[in-house]
Design a protein around this nucleic acid. Structure first.
Lengths: 73, 73
DNA sequence: TTTTAATAACACAAATATGTGTTTATAGAT
DNA sequence: ATCTATAAACACATATTTGTGTTATTAAAA
């Protein structure tokens, strides 16, 4: 699927949010588990920022899923 | 697998390099295809930087693979 | 209506990636 | 030894994320 970069970050954010909600976590809980500021989670889910590899990894660890699962969309 | 963040970016870089070489591409060719500076590819492969979602996406497109394949390690 | 939890939205400094350029190192071929 | 291609290693300005606050919405419950 060919996609614009901004659309990609937006879809990534939506997918992250869906996974977070499936796990029954609030942004704040996820942020605490991942040791990331809560605002950062919001910015990522809204597709505002193109977050970094390490942040992605920390989030995957906090969600207890593989990183590649975050890209399954 | 539990892993340090720096080790993760390092493994990501090694995996990217392996895929690039499998495809028979030089850093320069990949950089051109992905519309990214060549030095950036080197920095990522060496694990020097924690690159961004959009850069990861551009690289995956240029390699003609799914993003999640870049995290299959 | 009022309270509460959750998220969005805004601002700002600090840290880091990005983009561009140049130079050095390495390895293979001639 | 020389040439060539590839990659590493610098430097530096610019752009963006990150981290830390504060304030404003939104929605649901009491």
């Amino acid at each position: 699927m060919e996609m614009d970069e901004q659309l990609f970050t937006s879809k990534f954010g939506n997918h992250l949010k869906a996974i977070r909600l499936e796990k029954g976590l609030s942004q704040e809980m996820l942020a605490n588990d991942a040791d990331i500021p809560i605002n950062q989670i919001g910015r990522i889910e809204r597709g505002e920022i193109s977050t970094s590899l390490t942040t992605i990894y920390k989030i995957a660890c906090a969600l207890d899923i593989e990183v590649k699962a975050l890209f399954d969309f």
